Computed example of a mutant assay.
Amino acid sequence: MLPPVVVGVDGSAESLAAAQWAAREAVRRERPLRLVHAWPWHPSRDGKEIDNAAQRHLAGRVLREAEDRVCAAYPGVHVSGEQADGPAIAALLKAADEADLLVLGSRGLSGFTGFLVASVALGVVAGASRPVVLVRGGEEASDEHLPADDGTASTSTGYRDVVLGVDVGEPCDEVIEFAFEAARLRNARLRAVHAWHPPGPLGLGAGDIALVDDPRRPDEWLGFLKAVLQVWRDKYPEVEVLETVAQDKPTNVLVRAATGASLLVVGHRLAERPIGPRTGPTTHAAIHHVDCPVAVVPHA
Rank of each mutant, 00 (worst) to 15 (best):
V120I: 12
L101K: 02
A72G: 15
W39F: 05
E65M: 04
L116H: 11
W41I: 09
S80Q: 13
V120M: 02
I50R: 10
G86I: 06
P75Y: 09
G47F: 03
A121C: 11
A73G: 09
S44W: 12
R64A: 15
N52Q: 06
F115W: 14
N52M: 04
G81H: 01
Q83A: 02
D68L: 05
P40N: 09
A38T: 01
D68T: 12
P75S: 14
G81S: 15
R45N: 00
L122N: 06
A84R: 11
A96I: 05
R56Q: 13
G81M: 00
K48T: 06
P40M: 05
K94D: 06
A54E: 11
S80I: 08
H57L: 14
A121Y: 04
G76K: 09
D100F: 13
L116V: 14
R56M: 10
A90S: 11
R107E: 13
G86M: 08
R69I: 08
A38G: 07
E98Q: 15
V70H: 03
G60P: 03
H42I: 11
R56F: 05
P43Q: 08
L101I: 01
V36Y: 03
V79H: 10
A54D: 10
P87R: 07
L102Y: 00
P87C: 10
V79S: 09
E49N: 04
H42N: 04
I50F: 03
S110E: 08
P40C: 03
V62Y: 05
D46C: 07
E49L: 15
A38N: 01
I50W: 07
G114N: 02
A54Y: 02
R69F: 01
E65V: 01
H78S: 14
S119I: 02
G108D: 13
R69Q: 13
N52G: 13
E98P: 12
E82M: 08
D51R: 07
W41A: 12
E67M: 15
G47H: 03
N52K: 05
V79I: 08
L104I: 04
V77E: 09
L122G: 08
H57G: 10
T113L: 15
H37M: 00
P75C: 12
E67L: 14
N52P: 06
P75F: 11
C71D: 00
A118Y: 00
R64N: 12
S80M: 06
A88R: 05
P87Q: 09
R107G: 05
G114K: 07
A72M: 15
L109K: 14
L109H: 15
A91G: 03
S106K: 01
R61I: 12
D68V: 00
V120C: 01
A99G: 00
D51C: 07
D68Y: 00
A54T: 06
F112A: 12
P43R: 12
E67Y: 14
Q55R: 04
V62R: 07
L93P: 06
G47P: 02
D100K: 10
W39R: 09
G111I: 07
L116I: 15
A90T: 11
D68R: 12
